Simulated scan of single mutants.
Amino acid sequence: MNEEYTEKHQKLSLGDKFKFSCHKGLTCFNSCCSDINIFLTPYDVLRMRKALKMSSGEFLKRYTVALLGDEGLPLVVLRMMEDENKSCPFVAQDGCGIYEDRPWSCRMYPIFQVPSEEERFWIEERPSCLGFNEERQWTIEGWKKAQGINIFDKMNESYKATTFHDYFEKGNRLDSGKAKLFYMACYNLDEFRGFLFKTKFFDIYDVDNGVIEKIREDEEELLNFGYRWIRFNLLQEDTLKPKDKVLDKLLQSGREQ
């Protein structure tokens, strides 16, 4: 392969340094935002649709495509525009229209995390990306802080713990019904809130009143409760307790079989 078109890969740890800067003065500005698969975490969807002042259902229908992973886990991908470049719907000539609430993967670029190693990362230096020719120097840790990654990492901890759960390591798979429940609790938070507050959910499960009020008003708390409910209802963990002690014993007995 011609060296001019060869991509350079670097494997880095948190303290390692790299050079990169993206700005309007580069002729390639915005080009990395086209013809790319951007997988959205539940927290990405929460931030993006709040920035756009849209309901979760409206945002998901208009801007995303839902897929199924190998374990039956729902995956949500940003729907790109149907133009020649398959452009991101939020990017204009001046840049990202939801920059303060852009997804985790957009914030991390040009850094990619090594899946099997928490503190290891890699960079793919593409010749077409002129940002690597800039003199601004970063450590991985400094880049993550500057890009506001920490809150995303914190909110994604429960998502990772759920999707990499032992339940799936043992070969289990979500059927279509459970996949729909997972999708609702993680992504369609308006529907999930209705499920909680418009049914007898809190008459059945023993949930502290303070928690109930938090998830009524705070969507981040609602999302975290969604993970808690998924781990109870789908992954057979004791993250919730029914008020009916007989029902609780029956559930425990069923899980021990």
Rank of each mutant, 00 (worst) to 15 (best):
K61R: 15
M155F: 06
V77S: 07
L250K: 14
A161G: 08
V77E: 11
R47S: 05
D44W: 00
K170Y: 11
F20D: 04
Y99M: 09
L14D: 05
E125K: 14
F112M: 12
E7G: 01
S87T: 12
F225M: 01
W122L: 09
F121Y: 14
F225A: 02
N233I: 07
I215S: 02
G95H: 07
D44C: 04
A51L: 06
Y109W: 14
R79K: 15
G226M: 00
Q252W: 13
L247D: 04
E169D: 13
V76N: 01
W229V: 09
L234T: 00
N233V: 03
T41Q: 03
F195N: 03
K178W: 06
W104R: 01
F232G: 07
D44K: 04
T27M: 11
K53Q: 14
N233F: 10
L60N: 00
E84M: 12
R47K: 15
Q10G: 08
G142W: 01
Q147I: 05
K11I: 14
K160D: 08
K245L: 12
A161E: 14
V65W: 03
V211F: 04
E3A: 13
K86Q: 14
K19T: 11
L181V: 09
E118V: 12
P127D: 09
Q10Y: 15
C88G: 08
N233S: 14
K17S: 13
L68I: 13
R255M: 10
E125F: 01
G57L: 06
Q137M: 14
R228A: 07
W104C: 05
N233R: 10
K249E: 13
N172G: 06
E117T: 09
R62P: 05
E191R: 07
E221P: 02
D190S: 08
C88M: 04
E124L: 09
L222M: 09
C22K: 00
F182S: 01
V207A: 06
R79P: 07
M184Q: 05
V211C: 03
P42D: 03
V76I: 15
D244P: 05
E119S: 15
I149C: 07
R255A: 11
L222D: 03
S21R: 07
E256R: 15
D208L: 09
K160W: 11
L247P: 02
L174C: 00
Y99K: 06
E220K: 12
E118T: 11
D83K: 11
F20N: 00
P242N: 02
S55W: 00
K245R: 15
